Every structure is written in C-alpha cells, then in structure tokens.
Computed example of a mutant assay.
Amino acid sequence: MSGLLAPFRLSLPFVRVLLADLGVRPADLLVAADLPGDLMSRDEAVLSPAQYYALFESLEHLVGDRDLAITVADTLSPEVFDPPIFAAMCSPNLHVAAERIAVHKRLLGPLRLRVDADADGVDLEITWPAGDPPPAVLPVVEVAFWVALARFGTRTQVVPQRVVLPQAPRNPAAVETWLRTRVERGATTFVRFSRLDATRPFLTANAGMWEFFEPELRRRLDDLAADATLRAKVRAALVELLPAGAGTTHRVARHLGVSTRTLQRRLGEEGATFGDILADVREELARHYLTKSALPLTEIAFLLGYDDPNSFHRAFNRRTGRTPLGVRATATG
C-alpha cells in the first residue's frame, strides 16, 4: 500500500489514556470525527488517512485552549503498552531509538522516518502520505514526540537544535516555549538533535527487553506482507494482544477485521486451529522469557495472558512436561 490508500494503525490504549488526561469523552470525539461508535472498545483500529486526520482535527478542537501536541508528548509513558514505542524506550540512546523506529514505523501507519547522522548531530525527517497534507497539529505531534522521548529517556531537558514544520502550529508561542527553540516553516517535518543529546544514555535502556521485542517486531513486519498466511497473522496478533489479556478468538478476529467464524474456517483450511497457535505462541514466549531474563513468574504469566502464575505453571507443565522454574534453572545452570 502507498499514498492515501495506506492505513494508519492507531494505538487505542494510548488514545484512551490521552483522552482521560484531556478530560475528553470518547463518544464526543467519535461523533465529532464521524468515526464508528465502538472504535474505542476495540483492541486496535486501522484508519484511513482521512479518518486519522479527522480524529486529530476533532480532538484539537475539543481540547480548546490547551495545545494538543504538547499534551500528547507529556503523556508519553511506558505504562501504555505499544511494542514499537516501548522498544524505543529500551534503546541505549535517542539515535538508536530513532533507527529502530524508522525500521518499524510502518507498523504504526504509512509515515516514514528518515534518520541521518553526521559528526555534529542527528536529523529526523518525517514523510507523510502523498496527495493530501496532514492537519497542522500532526507534524507538531511527531516533533514533540521525539523531543519528549529524548527528555523522558535521559531525564534531561533536551533542546532540539532545529525544528521545521510544514504549517504553523495553532499556538506557536506555546509550542516554542515547550520545545525551547524557534520553529521554522518549510516543506518538511524535521527535527535535529546535537550529537551530545542524540547519544546521551537513556536511563530507560533495557537491552534484555529489546531482545524480547525485536524478534516479534520483525515477525510483525513480515506478517504485513500480502502473502502472509492467516496462521502468521494470528500469531502476530496474539503477541500484541496477550499482554492486554485479549488473546481470545473473538479479540483476534476483531483485530484482523474478520468474523470469528471466518477466522476459524480459514485457519482450518490451512490445517491449523486457534488453540494450537495460542499454545505455540505461549510456549515459545515463555521459554524466551524464562531463559533470557530474570523476570518473575508473575510478570511472565501477565505477559502471556494468564490470570495468575499458577495457571501459567499448570499450562506450561501440561504442554512441556517441565516446570517454568525447571526450565530457568537448566538455562542458568
């Protein structure tokens, strides 16, 4: 997909947190943006660029005098589970985070991120779908995100060296005060960081967590291919939905935009069942967490979508004939 036909993948957990922080009722936003009334109850939404733009234009109108881009940036937090963003926070510094998100950006939508580094700094340029420019607020949101990520990761008041926006922000003074730098007008969405700030260590760095997410992010990229099997797409969906306790047939079917009956029928045509795929994903991820991390069983059970550690222990033992702690002991012995 390219251009205006490419969809935007919306992180609904992040949007729900954002709306709560803004004091905006989801129903009011959906009516204003002319979007489906059940959108916020879904696990994920895939919107056309026109719908995505309408959502942010309507939200900017509903927040009144507050600056939406600044509020979005200030909402940045690891509490909202979104694998590409969480992986960025786990990076050793801003430069590495940008390189990682540039690779996985299309998991979030048709935006493209170009990362260029020289001896003095790192440039980030965001490219939007051709044909219809985004509303003025969205380029500001993208730039503010990168500045917020730099500040959040380093716990330092990072100031970008240069910011370029294709349209003037609704409240230029507030945006420039928050960025602590002047905003230029240009034909692109662009932000430059000094070499010092781009390589300043992230206090949120976690190489182990990146090892968890990176293989799955790559698999999800592969699963975007048109010829990917439904089994592969279900697997990718489960990796994303399990931490939210949403690894059910109904939730996965809704995630993939098909009915539960269609999902089961098409899996059957591929010689697979949903239960078998779920069990395979849980076992593979469990072995990965047990052998590659020191995460307690309570956290592993949560990441795999179990209600409690005992349920995880019984299911793992039933499938493998071993206990979780036994597998961990063998790996570390």
Rank of each mutant, 00 (worst) to 15 (best):
R220G: 04
T262W: 08
R266E: 15
R254L: 05
V239K: 00
A226V: 13
R218H: 14
H255P: 03
F193D: 13
F193R: 11
D227T: 13
F213W: 02
D227Y: 08
H250K: 13
P201Q: 13
H255Y: 15
V252L: 02
T199K: 02
N206W: 04
L224Y: 01
G208H: 04
R195W: 01
G268V: 12
D223G: 10
F193C: 12
L256A: 08
S194H: 07
P215R: 04
A198K: 12
E269C: 06
G268N: 08
R219M: 07
T199R: 09
D222V: 10
M209E: 05
F202P: 00
A207F: 07
R231C: 02
E214G: 03
T248C: 02
A246R: 15
T262Y: 05
T262M: 12
E214L: 06
G245H: 13
R220K: 15
F212W: 03
T260F: 01
D227N: 12
P215K: 03
R235H: 12
H255G: 05
V252F: 00
L230V: 08
S259E: 05
A236L: 01
R195E: 08
P243T: 08
G257Y: 11
R235T: 11
L221Q: 03
P243G: 04
R218D: 15
E216L: 13
T204L: 11
E270S: 08
L267S: 07
A236K: 00
A237Q: 04
R266L: 09
G245W: 11
N206K: 04
L263Q: 04
F202D: 00
F193P: 06
E269R: 15
P215D: 08
R195V: 01
V258S: 10
L217H: 00
F212L: 09
L217P: 00
A253L: 10
G271E: 14
A232T: 05
